[in-house]
Nucleic acid binder design. Structure first.
Length: 326
DNA sequence: CATCAGGGCCCTG
DNA sequence: CAGGGCCCTGAT
């Protein structure tokens, strides 16, 4: 059993995102499976963060409103974090959660859309966002491949609990991701014992490619989408589905939408065409339909999707339960 | 019990 | 460019 790392509060800052900004729908995405690296309750989000190779705990608190947003960020560590490092961490947080995204044009364009209209009103200030680094997201993407939600969550938790660090901060115990290259001394067979199956090979290779510097997140961030895609596709085990997730969640492309997996196809068929999910609309037709959202295709679907999963928390949506297969 | 399809991707032919 | 194989799991 690994030791728990106790962290102390080292810094608290208040940041004002651009408005409108909705704390809860930005910091909690009900469609993401829970993995023990974060915890949310109304107006508070706990999140572990491997920053520059070391584990940190972060507590986000809602200190404002949608129209006058203020987010307090409390940082917990077990070492002295330099001012420089702290500053760049805050910049990274702002980037990850799209604190400065301007939503006005999107809202203006679609306030009368028959599907989006109501949703953007209800979720005004919702930002897309994801706390994972590229490395972390690649690992997540790999455990998502060819597996149902329950199995993906199981694989991810096994990885986290074996190679991550359990942090104790702000009243929570949460697992923090290991750093890129952290699997250097772990064999493929050892990974297989965690029942990740053939993904063991992929996970090893991804980890190695970060050690050797074959891929650099910040460099890639400054490249255009085509370059990002082609670089990511070079990684062993990364194909169009994984790239599609990363382009949105890691590189924040709000417009790119070219991939629909079978289970998503069923859900979109119901959402956009009120079609029986068992008799779904063709992917090509769905993609054509999404053209109406132009440069906000991915953002628009994110809103519809989050709305659906937020509703799932309070209403019964039998057809959805059937498609999710927990 | 056995068989099978997954929230893909690689590799082969 | 089509299709088999891959790990494991829960559903049938």
């Amino acid at each position: 059993m690994k030791r728990t790392l106790k962290l102390k509060l080292v810094k608290a800052v208040k940041i004002k995102p651009s408005f409108p900004f909705d704390f809860n729908s930005t910091f909690y995405k009900p469609d993401h499976f829970t993995t023990g690296d974060n915890f949310w309750q109304t107006d508070i989000r706990w999140q572990t963060w491997n920053w520059q190779g070391r584990p940190l705990g972060i507590k986000f608190l809602n200190r404002g409103s949608v129209s006058q947003p203020v987010v307090e960020i409390k940082i917990y560590a077990n070492y002295k974090i330099s001012l420089n490092s702290l500053h760049s961490l805050l910049e990274e947080i702002k980037y990850s959660y799209n604190f400065n995204l301007n939503l006005k044009d999107f809202y203006q364009n679609f306030k009368n859309d028959k599907i989006l209209g109501k949703i953007i009103k209800k979720w005004r200030g919702l930002r897309p966002g994801h706390p994972s680094s590229l490395y972390e997201y690649l690992i997540i993407g790999i455990v998502l491949q060819n597996a149902s939600v329950r199995r993906s969550a199981q694989m991810f938790q096994a990885l986290l609990q074996n190679y991550g660090t359990l942090l104790d901060f702000a009243g929570k115990q949460l697992w923090c991701f290991w750093k890129p290259g952290g699997l250097k001394n772990i064999s493929e067979d050892e990974l297989r014992l965690l029942k990740v199956g053939y993904r063991a090979k992929t996970i090893k290779k991804i980890d190695e490619q970060f050690v050797t510097g074959q891929i650099n997140e910040l460099d890639l961030r400054s490249q255009n989408r085509e370059t990002q895609m082609s670089e990511l596709l070079k990684l062993y085990g990364v194909g169009p589905a994984t790239v599609w997730y990363i382009l949105f969640d890691v590189f924040h492309h709000l417009d790119y939408f070219d991939h629909i997996s079978p289970w998503e196809q069923k859900i979109y068929s119901k959402l956009f065409f009120n079609r029986d999910p068992e008799n779904p609309i063709a992917v090509s037709k769905l993609l054509k339909y999404l053209e109406r959202f132009g440069k906000y295709k991915q953002l628009a679907v994110h809103y519809v999707w989050e709305d659906l999963f937020w509703r799932r928390r309070t209403e019964k949506i039998p057809w959805l339960e059937k498609e999710i297969r927990q």
